[in-house]
Amino acid sequence: MTKKLIVALHGVGSNARDMMSALQPLTSQADVVALDGPEPFHANALGRQWFSVAGITEANRPGRVKAAVPQLLEMLDRVAQDRGVRRDDFVLIGFSQGAIMTLAAIAGGHFHGHAVAIAGRLAAEVASQGQPANLLLVHDRDDPVMPPTLSVEAGAALSRAGHQVHGARTAGVGHGIGETTTSIINRWLAGAKLENAV
């Protein structure tokens, strides 16, 4: 059986290497490719970001996300071309700011495959479109950075638009990717039914 291909998007200030390390438990059933965000992170020489968080507000976040989506799609298409697959054939996994970008790609109708958003929020308009994505939202109950209600809101909005949304909560992970997180994702990738607990 051919392994799934995961394309992973890290959080702000992190990088592809760190994301690869965090998702190592998924490599038993998938090939994992992690991408570096296109912009340097101002507070960390080794960190990258998908869009600038300097002076970020609730009002200007959607505009920054929208401006970042085309470059993300170009990066995804390069991976798809290199691997000889379609963009929608791989599993898109994003954490934190990477999850924001994952949800934006789905909301805009740019990605229709399987996706996982870990500790994310929806900061993009949701387009009505006929081809749904299959989305897993994972959020820790005690996340001090992204309240879990943000995943609830994202799931509700995307579900109304016709996407297949599944949810799971972790405990004790905080704002990060823990063993429980990857265990849930592995079960979901293997086809296990998860309780909608986000």
Rank of each mutant, 00 (worst) to 15 (best):
N196M: 12
A16T: 02
A156H: 11
A124W: 03
A154C: 12
D89Y: 02
R87S: 03
V116D: 07
V33L: 11
V53I: 15
G37R: 01
I6W: 00
L46S: 07
L5K: 03
F51N: 11
H110C: 12
P147Y: 12
L9Q: 06
R87M: 01
G63F: 08
R121G: 14
A133K: 05
Q129D: 15
W50Y: 07
A154S: 15
D89V: 00
R141I: 12
H110F: 10
V138Y: 09
T2V: 10
G84L: 07
T27M: 10
V12H: 05
G47K: 00
A115G: 09
V32N: 00
M1R: 12
F90G: 01
S14G: 04
T27S: 08
G174L: 02
V12T: 09
I177F: 03
K3S: 07
D88M: 12
D142H: 13
E153V: 08
A123N: 08
V145Y: 08
L150K: 09
T149H: 12
A43L: 14
A59K: 15
A190Y: 04
A124T: 09
N44I: 03
M101C: 08
P70W: 05
G191E: 08
I185T: 09
L150S: 14
W50H: 06
V32G: 00
S159K: 10
V152D: 15
R78Y: 00
T181K: 09
R17Y: 14
G84W: 03
H163T: 06
S159D: 13
A197G: 12
G162Y: 04
G55R: 06
G130D: 14
P62F: 10
L72R: 00
G155L: 01
A127Y: 10
R86D: 14
R169L: 13
E179N: 14
V85Y: 04
F111S: 02
D82F: 05
L103E: 06
M75P: 02
M19Q: 13
T182A: 05
A154L: 04
T170A: 11
S14A: 14
K4T: 08
L189D: 06
R86G: 15
A192L: 12
L9P: 02
G176N: 10
R83H: 11
S128M: 10
P148Q: 14
E39Q: 14
L194P: 04
G155T: 05
Q164V: 13
T2N: 08
A119Y: 01
I93K: 02
T102E: 01
A192D: 12
